[in-house]
Amino acid sequence: MKVYLEVGSFLKRFTSEQTNLEINISGDKTAAEVVLSAGVPEEEIGFITVNGQKVDSDYVLKENDIIRVYPIIVGG
């Protein structure tokens, strides 16, 4: 099945500058698995949303889900 991954400004360095990816997955896959397999390192992931809602990393994806990954909030 098909899901969509959106990668914001900072994290796109890990996805060869691609910001919108269409990904085919088979079987049960979690949001975190898709983000990681797209190349975003675990330590760079702040949080993930699916269809605009913040989800836990073990959220199991459904057909046509739109996943978006955000960087860690930085500061002193």
């Binding site: 400004s9 900072f10 760079e44 949080f47 955000y70 960087p71 909030i73 930085v74 500061g75």
Partner: peptide, 23 residues
């Protein structure tokens, strides 16, 4: 990656995740 994080767009990169997460 601290280098790229703070040098690239810098701390303003926070606006996007904070706004998306409601913070």
């Amino acid at each position: 990656s601290i280098m790229s994080k703070y040098h690239d767009a810098g701390t303003p990169v926070n606006i996007e995740p904070l706004n998306a997460a409601g913070g």
